[in-house]
Amino acid sequence: MIVNAIILILIGSSAFFFGVGTLGLIRMPDTYTRMHASTKCDTLGAGLALLALAVYSGFSIISVKSIIVIAFIWITNPTAAHIIAKAKYHSEKKEELQK
């Protein structure tokens, strides 16, 4: 019963953060601010959802593997955001130089 409540809370907050990330992606005015919304909310949303999965399946291979997926997503997501921002920044600078 308590486990079910924990899973419900985790899934609910994960859905909330995924929704906020998507809304930010649509509402924000330029690329960098969109990246703020999407990166942070997606990272936490994915973490909470997979944590709910790990709690649901108890001590099994699925929970160990979903923890590995969480670690992987939490390392790669900020890195990917940084690389996109860097690419955008440098290509903008190049265009300014050409003018």
Binding site: L25, R34, M35, A81, I84, A87, S91
Partner: peptide
């Protein structure tokens, strides 16, 4: 193009 990459990443 950067906006599209962000969306696909998400």
């Amino acid at each position: 193009a950067a906006d599209r990459v962000v969306a696909i990443d998400v």
